[in-house]
Amino acid sequence: MNTDITENNSGPLIHVAPSPHVYSTQLTTRNMMRDVLISLVPVMLAALYYFRWLAVKQLFICVVSCLVAEAVFTRLRGRAISLKDLSAAVTGIILALSLPATAPWYVGVIGSTAAMGIGKMVFGGLGMNIFNPAMVGRAFVMIAFSGLLAASGYVAGGGVDIISQATPLTIYKQSGMVTPLPALILGKVNGSLGETSALACLIGGLFLCLRRTASWELSAGVLVGASIIGGVANVLNISNPWSVVHHLNSGALLFGAFFIATDPVTSPLTPRGKWIFGLGVGAFLMVFRLFSGYPEGLMFAVLLMNAVTPLLNRWTIPRPFGGA
């Protein structure tokens, strides 16, 4: 496309190209993925602090498996290997952080392969997938190994204290006992690796939103949606004494609001669409928590809203400047 027009060999080489001729170079796909990795640091630190070597093992297995799976699948499709866009690493970390510490190694490997293969590559790779790859991977292993990923799967003996008891949402569902808020906020409870510390999720999430790498409308939508349904449930006495504040600080709600619902590829493009998507995730999540057999509903809520994202994009075409 570029044309060499130098009049004589001594002059500079002049190109032509269509406008615009200047670009913002700070913002790249890779930098956005790097931001996500940075924002996940507090969450990973909390996981390492509470789950010790179990967290190390799970993160290592999932990241390596995702990178290998991406490399293999891109190779099969005859495309250039795309590991340096860091998106496979992000999927690996998010998948690992959404698994229980106790899940055996093959759960991570199979989950990662499903995430990259079924979640991403069959649709055409980065940017083309409809469903959040990490959640596809997690759904796959949850169905394949239902025992290992059900509420009971989280409990095990061994060197780490907090995995000796059930997750707060399960304890409440089974015995009505309410975990105190400070434990939920700091994360000294059982759960999937990344979800236990509300504080760590909040720190990382705020960083993402402030950098505008995550759209704040998505996170805010989830929080508002969950608060509304949770608040109504409180008023109607459906889930007391587990209050809406407990709901917001427990389970995968904050982790999902900041790191899963905010996946740009699988969420809407328009501000109005983003709000609807977030509200939908928050509301469905609460409905699942309150009325389903599962203690947690984030994964299904995100996958459900992913499915309607193309529709949301079409329904929320913004009013153009000067339009009626």
Binding site: H15, A17, H21, V22, Y23, T25, L27, T28, T29, R30, M32, D85, G125, L126, G127, M128, S215, P264, V265, S267, P268, L269, T270, K274
Partner: peptide
């Protein structure tokens, strides 16, 4: 001044 970022696919970030 005309440097631009490497082209990837659209990640639908909405910028």
């Amino acid at each position: 001044e005309i440097r631009r970022v490497e082209q990837t696919v659209c990640v639908r970030c909405g910028r």
